[in-house]
Structures are given as C-alpha cells and as structure tokens.
Amino acid sequence: MFKFRLIKLFPIMLLLGIHVNTAYAQVSPPGLGKARTASWSVLGLRRKLDSAGTKEALTYIGLGTKSTPDDSNPFHKQAIWVLNHEVYHKFAKNQQYSYALSYRRQNVYDEAAPYHNEGVEQEFRLYGRYAYTFTLNDRLKWKNTLRQEFRKFFTADFQKTEENFQFRTRLKSQLNFKISAKNKQELALSAEGLFAISKLYEPASAWSSFAYKETRLGFYYMTDIPKTPLRLDLGYMNDLIKGYDKVDFGVHYLAVDLIWNLPYSKKH
C-alpha cells in the first residue's frame, strides 16, 4: 500500500525536486526489470565543446548486473551493457537541451525459477531532453527535465521481438545540495516517472495503451577525486515497477560512476 501511496505523491515530488549542476550530472541506472537488487557501473568521458562552457559531450560505457526475484545478490546475473553518447547545450541562463544515441544489449531471463537465460535483446535508442533549472540559494539547485525517447528492439541476430518499438516519456525532478567547495562535493535527490506506448509484433500487430510504467527514486553523493580529472558518483536507486509485487518496496540498485573530465581544446 505504501508503494502506491508514493506513486500518487509523485506530482508533489516533481514540484519539490532537486537538481545537480549540468556539468556534474550523474548517470542514472537503467531499469533492469524484475529482481530484488541490482548494480550499475559506468566509465565515461566528458568533454567541453566550447570555451564559454555552454556545450559539452558525454560518452560512457555502462555495465549492469542483478539478482533474481528470489535472492539479494546484485551481482548474481549479467543484465545489460550500454554504450551512450549525449551532447548538451545550455542555450539560456536556466535552460538546457540535449540529444543522444544509445546502444543497449540486455539479457532476458525466464520469469519463473530457476530463471534460465532466454537470450539477448538489443536496443537502439534515440532521445532528447529539455531541462529548466532554478537556483534556490548558494547551496541548492532545482532541475526539472522532460525526456522523450524512441526505442527500437531486436533479437541477438537482428530478428523481430514481441515489441517492435516504443515511445517513452520521462519526467524527472532533481534537487542538488552543495556540501563543500572542496572537491565540489554534492548530494542529489531525484524522482522520475516513466510513461510509454508500444507498437507490438505479438500476439498481434497493434499499439498498446499509453500508460504509466514505473517510478525511480535516486540518492547520490558526488565528488572530484583530488589531483585528477576524475569525478566519482556513488548512488542508490529504488525502482518501483507497476504490477511487480514480489518485492516489498521496489528493486534496490547500487551505482558508481567514474567520469574523466576534459577541458575545451581549441582546434587549429
């Protein structure tokens, strides 16, 4: 019951959400489906694209693992690997847009024990997002984001899957609190709601209804690593999946990002 009350409170959380500075936004875990726990790790390269600091690109490779619905080992099964490239443009004082291309390769498991591996599903994703940031005071920033995705699915050998493609809308609100200027230490709290509509191949070629799918709640600690160009993010995410009641309160994720920041380099 508490889970569904939390979902009903999501519009309120959206108005009270919190943001991370665009230059140091963490890479949130992808949804890995039904499990009890999961892990997400990222190695990335962030590069500034202009001297004014309004444009940057982030390229990363991510690896996800998860437990089964019956155990709590987040490293029990291989779940996904991701290659993602995104370009950001801060075009006004408080406004930013970005666009991205992503390739994902996700393992698919039986829904019943002993949860054998059924194979691999490939996904190509295009998405864009718009964000508006409020500076509340010297320590707090608040960012609300609308993200629209197009997702195309294939089997491991590029054959049709049950789901042909999907349009997904994501609404996220995030609050950032600056702990200390030393190493740019920050805390971030976020809430995100996901809604989608799909074109299906099976059981018949048809459209699904546009519907709510899940809520993702996140908490992160972020810091620069002294005397290096590296940024470290340590986080937790709780994924509340619609209709998944085998766990008491969502799927619990542990996450770590390591991002190498490169300054702007003028081309000659």
Rank of each mutant, 00 (worst) to 15 (best):
P229N: 14
S72Y: 14
G62W: 00
A92D: 14
I241S: 00
F249N: 09
L146P: 02
A57F: 02
Y103T: 09
P74F: 00
L126I: 13
R231F: 08
L232T: 03
L258M: 06
K242S: 12
L63G: 03
K152R: 11
E202K: 14
S39P: 03
K242F: 04
L187I: 09
E149S: 10
L240D: 02
R46C: 04
T215H: 03
F91T: 02
M222C: 03
L16M: 13
E111P: 04
F249D: 05
P203F: 02
Q148W: 07
K267T: 15
K77H: 08
D71C: 05
L126Y: 14
I80T: 10
A100R: 01
R104E: 13
M1P: 10
K66A: 05
W40Y: 03
K66H: 07
D224R: 00
I12F: 15
Y130R: 02
T37W: 12
T135H: 14
F75A: 11
L45H: 07
Y60I: 01
K172H: 10
D138T: 15
G193L: 06
H19D: 13
S265V: 15
L6Q: 10
L49G: 05
K199E: 11
Y220C: 04
V82D: 11
K184R: 12
Y60V: 01
G119D: 00
E86I: 14
Y99S: 10
T155N: 12
D70S: 13
R104Q: 14
F219D: 03
T65D: 06
P226N: 04
A79R: 02
L49S: 01
T133M: 10
K77G: 05
P114W: 00
A255I: 09
E214W: 00
A92C: 05
I259E: 00
Y127T: 04
M222V: 01
G235C: 01
S98N: 14
S39H: 04
D70N: 11
F91N: 07
I179T: 09
Y103M: 06
K246M: 09
V256H: 00
